Amino acid sequence: MYKVIEPVVAGGLGEKTQMDNSFFPPVVKSLHYEFDGWLGDDILESFPCYIVTNALRSGIESENLTGVIFDNVTIYKSETFLELYPDKDLPIFFWLKITGEENKDDFFITKKNGLAISERAYLLLEKYDIQGADIEDL
Rank of each mutant, 00 (worst) to 15 (best):
I130Q: 06
P48R: 04
E101S: 07
L44A: 09
N21C: 09
K29F: 15
Y76F: 12
K29Q: 13
G114H: 14
N54S: 06
G67E: 07
D129C: 09
I130T: 11
N54R: 05
K29H: 15
L90V: 13
K88D: 11
C49K: 07
K111I: 14
S46D: 15
K29W: 15
L39K: 11
Y128K: 09
S30I: 09
L13I: 08
Y2W: 02
D20V: 05
S118V: 08
S78Q: 09
K127Q: 12
D137G: 01
Y122Q: 11
Y76G: 06
F47P: 01
F24Q: 07
K97V: 14
N113V: 13
I51F: 01
T110R: 06
T17F: 10
G67C: 07
I98V: 15
T99H: 06
F23Y: 15
D71T: 12
K88F: 15
I98R: 00
I51D: 02
A121Y: 08
V9R: 03
I98G: 03
V4D: 00
I92Y: 09
G11F: 14
V68M: 01
I5D: 01
E83R: 10
V73W: 05
E6R: 02
G114T: 12
F94E: 14
K77L: 10
K111A: 09
R57F: 05
F93W: 12
P26I: 10
M19G: 07
L39E: 12
F107E: 01
S118W: 13
V4F: 00
V8L: 02
N21Q: 08
E83P: 04
V8I: 04
L123F: 15
E45M: 08
